[in-house]
Computed example of a mutant assay.
Amino acid sequence: MRRLVARQFPRWADLPLRPVATSGWDNQTFHLGDRMSVRLPTAGEYALAVDKEHRWLPILAPRVPLRIPVPLAKGEPDEGFGFHWSIYEWLDGDPAGIDTIGDLVDFADSLATFLVALRQIDPTGGPEPGLHNWFRGGPLQVYDRQTQRAIEALDDRIPRDPVEEIWQLALLASWDCRPVWFHGDVAPGNLLVRDGALAAVIDFGTCGVGDPACDVAIAWTLLSGASREAFRARLDVDPGTWARGRGWALWKALVTYARALRRDHTAAVEARRVIDEVLTEYAESA
């Protein structure tokens, strides 16, 4: 990383460089000085997002009510690293969580307000669902086979009848409206909190234009009860979008649970918690 910066951006070569505390899966991330970050895609699929982010984030940033990353420079493949990479301005904050959020209802309202503003941006020419974002914004059917395999693998560890019912209802709730902008990975690690309030939304690698239901999954992965209701009310989504959002949350939790059973107890427990949230909310709404 030091060699890449020194060769391609010598004006920043003397700035201190250090890994961030939690780098994530899609990119390896570093602090560059005090005001910048460097992101290196970890595989060719993730590198597909680099050009997209440089093209669209400067357009999206002034149109949303929270800060989002703004690219400062795009690096070229070099020094044995085979992909384009990015330098961004650094955004301060802690990942969203029960221990960092002051008021979960206010947080949910702020997040929904951000997503409403994002969806109101002109989608003309925006990136449609594809490999660059793992088909976020497209139909859930693309993950049907994977979900069915996870259900089979989990067997009696989950209540299969209601799980399959929720999944089938999500598949049937098709999207037939005008495409809109979506983030694609509205997860706690991509939501930054300062002084207890939502301050920034990061990591737009899965963003695009299409069905925004994938952004609704946070209603089950982080929110619950009154905060979930506040989120839904501010977002003002139709029942079909809510059902598909529930399906996105269920798909990810099932797949994670099945993969983590023998390798990652913490991930398995969290995935099962999300499944239980989905089941409880669905039963209460019936």
Rank of each mutant, 00 (worst) to 15 (best):
D109V: 14
S86C: 06
P77D: 08
A117D: 10
L111N: 11
L91T: 11
H132W: 07
W85T: 03
G75P: 07
D122A: 04
I121N: 03
W134L: 14
S110M: 01
A117F: 02
Q120R: 01
V70N: 12
G102W: 04
F114K: 10
D103W: 09
K74T: 15
P95G: 10
L118D: 00
W85M: 04
V70R: 08
E79S: 13
I68H: 14
G82R: 10
V116S: 02
I87Y: 12
P77G: 09
P95E: 04
S86G: 08
E89I: 04
P71F: 13
G93P: 13
F107A: 01
F114C: 08
Q120V: 04
G75M: 03
F107Q: 00
P95A: 15
P129W: 11
I121E: 04
F81L: 02
A96N: 09
L131C: 04
D94N: 09
P69V: 13
F107R: 00
D99M: 04
I101L: 05
L91F: 10
P127C: 06
D109P: 05
D103L: 07
P69E: 00
V116D: 03
D122S: 01
F81S: 05
G82T: 10
H132N: 15
P123H: 05
P69G: 08
N133Q: 09
G80V: 13
F135Q: 14
G75D: 07
D103T: 08
P127F: 10
L91C: 11
G80M: 11
P129N: 07
P77A: 12
D109S: 14
H84D: 15
A117E: 13
P77H: 07
L111I: 11
G97E: 11
D122I: 12
G97Y: 06
A112W: 02
G130T: 12
D99V: 12
P123W: 05
G126D: 03
L118P: 00
K74N: 03
P129Q: 05
T124F: 05
F107N: 00
T113D: 13
G75Q: 03
A108N: 11
G102D: 03
T124R: 02
H132K: 12
Y88H: 14
P69L: 11
T100G: 03
G93A: 12
A73R: 15
G82K: 08
L131P: 07
I98W: 06
E89F: 07
D122K: 00
I87L: 15
N133M: 12
Y88T: 07
G97D: 09
